[in-house]
Nucleic acid binder design. Structure first.
Length: 573
DNA sequence: GCCGTTTTCGGCCCGACTGTTTTCAGTCG
């Protein structure tokens, strides 16, 4: 039986929740949470590591005990300790601590006093008014729980970054107009450019917080106000998005921004360094004893604890603190490094613009090249092209290239990878192309083994260049198909193929963990928009964000090269 | 449960807000 990292992480995370409800040592609980996080973001398959006899206690936050437990999970598919805890308290209690206002203590009370073991039981008791008299509860908490339960029935989960931008940016501008505001910036996972956002954290500096707090809670999209104080307030917008506003003084801007950008795990790691230096780091600054010694800028904060500046996208406690200490932080790729786009559609298939229009838009971005990659015949819903239509398009591109100056249209196609690993156009037309993007659009539910073999077989074709949207996932909509990404990457490396970071905000595929995996393996990627209209070329920035989260530098990205260099890179031996 | 160039034991990040209290616990980020 195959055990994936996510499964091991889930077991530790559940165990942490249940132990916390039982009142276990909070640091022991944290150890399980840290282990879950470490394993979830590990670029290697833990099961394989166990089989190869790797020493798991070398991993950060994993000691003798947890290494043994991981081994137990891999070998037996279960964890004795979790079964044991579950025999004392129901596993479903873990879902209750996810409800705002309910933490481990109150969940314990619910179970002990009323025998509540899951969301359904909680809903029945709350509706019957049984919560308000419990110790540590009251009428307000009961009401809050009822609200949350009804909200859950309809609410969205996490919000895609691009959607969050549409709500957050206007609110930010609105706050900038408040009296006395000197700076306003969005921190949190939004600033770290995570693919989805749970809530928005806004940081403001000003001398008197009252006017901006007042303006905040009276924003016309406010559904309700969760809290309002002098330094922090929280609202929920009608869209369901929760927004926190923090106000600090100018001299605390850097430390507050560092603090509220997170991630929590990164902050703990940085504070750990501060403690070792005999300093205290909080949102107001870095302190020696009672004395403020730094905090005006983030650079100053990092410098004070002995580190160079760390880019927000790296702040996930994935090794960035150690890398910073050792002076080997990556110099992350930026939008300005991008010289072209290697995946775009036109009216010939399911795009909305002509080749000329797409070319003009790419040129306006200052690109050196744009690959036209219309669908091929298997993708009938998109009016995929057969060899004859593709040949006509190639002639049109030749004619257009004669007229274009300063940029080149690359001849390409998004070729469909069939179930048996063959490509859906013959090689005698594929050989006419500058490159191919090869993707899976059908038969997404093959076994992991078959899906992996399918792709590797396709890569055996000498005209396979870039594997498009490699996991097939749609954020918050469709899970990735089962595929062994490490094997696919290894196969690509051996054959001179590459993987795509698809920049569509609903794909972002490869994800951050897989970008890092590619980098660690020495495999280059293409950041491509998969544009279906001229304005989609703007999605490049989301792809770059994702690549930065995966530690990618310009040299890791194909389309930071000029065409002559790129051409020799992608030419297979 | 992890970890150590002060430590193999005794630490483990830190502060704000709310509600239920009557000086603070619980929750949250």
């Amino acid at each position: 039986m195959a055990i994936h990292n996510a499964e091991i992480a889930r077991i530790f995370s559940l165990l942490a929740d249940l132990l916390e409800i039982e009142g276990a040592n909070p640091f022991r609980v944290r150890a399980y949470r840290n282990a879950a996080r470490t394993i979830e973001s590990l670029p290697h398959n833990v099961e394989a590591m166990v089989r190869e006899g790797a020493d798991l206690s070398e991993l950060p936050g994993i000691g003798e005990d947890l290494a043994g437990k991981i081994k137990e999970i891999v070998e037996t598919g279960r964890l004795g300790l979790l079964e044991e805890v579950k025999s004392r308290i129901p596993g479903a209690l873990a879902e209750l601590v996810a409800i705002p206002g309910l933490g481990p203590k109150r969940v314990k009370v619910l179970y002990d006093a009323l025998g509540i073991q899951d969301i359904e039981g909680l809903a029945r008791a709350a509706k019957a008014g049984k919560l308000r008299n419990l110790p540590g509860f009251g009428a307000k908490i009961e009401e809050k729980i009822l609200e949350e339960l009804s909200r859950r029935a309809t609410a969205e989960k996490r919000m895609k970054l691009i959607t969050a931008e549409q709500f957050a940016e206007p609110l930010l501008n609105y706050l900038r107009e408040a009296n006395g505001v000197t700076r306003a910036i969005i921190a949190g996972s939004y600033r770290r450019r995570k693919e989805t956002i749970g809530d928005i954290d806004i940081l403001v500096t000003c001398r008197d917080s009252d006017p901006v707090m007042e303006r905040f809670v009276t924003y016309d999209e406010v559904e309700h106000v969760l809290s309002k104080g002098k330094t922090r307030s929280t609202i929920v917008l009608r869209s369901g998005l929760q927004v926190d506003l923090r106000v600090v003084a100018e001299e605390s801007y850097g430390s507050a921004l560092q603090y509220f950008t997170g991630s929590k795990a990164h902050n703990i790691a940085v504070r750990h360094l501060a403690v070792k230096l005999g300093l205290k780091l909080n949102e107001y600054g870095v302190f020696r004893g009672e004395t403020y010694i730094a905090g005006r800028t983030e650079e100053e904060v990092y410098r004070t604890v002995g580190l160079p500046y760390i880019e927000p996208e790296l702040r996930e406690d994935w090794g960035e603190v150690e890398a910073a200490q050792q002076g080997r932080l990556p110099h992350l790729v930026t939008l300005a490094d991008i010289r072209g786009d290697l995946h775009a559609h036109t009216k010939a298939t399911d795009g909305q613009a002509t080749i000329e229009e797409m070319a003009a838009a790419a040129k306006a971005k200052g690109y050196d090249y744009l690959a036209i990659t219309d669908h091929t015949k298997r993708v009938t819903v998109a009016n995929g092209m057969d060899a004859k239509r593709l040949a006509q398009q190639l002639e049109a591109i030749d004619r257009l290239n004669e007229r274009l100056s300063g940029m080149k249209i690359l001849k390409s196609a998004e070729v469909d990878i069939l179930e048996d690993g063959s490509l859906d156009l013959p090689n005698d037309i594929l050989k006419e192309l500058d490159l191919t993007v090869c993707s899976i659009h059908y038969k997404l539910n093959l076994s992991r083994e078959k899906q992996t073999e399918r792709v590797i077989r396709a890569m055996d074709n000498p005209y396979f260049t870039i594997f498009g949207h490699p996991s097939g996932r749609m954020i918050e909509e469709r899970a990735p198909y089962a595929i062994d990404m490490e094997r696919v990457m290894q196969a690509a490396l051996e054959r001179g193929c590459f993987l795509e970071v698809n920049a569509q905000p609903s794909r972002l595929d490869l994800n951050d963990v897989h970008c890092k995996m590619a980098k660690d393996m020495g495999l280059k990627v293409a950041i491509s928009t998969d544009a279906h209209r001229t304005t989609d070329l703007d999605f490049m920035r989301f792809g770059v964000d994702q690549a930065r989260r995966g530690w990618l530098e310009p040299s890791d990205v194909l389309n930071t090269k000029k065409w002559s260099e790129l051409k020799s890179l992608i030419t297979r031996a």
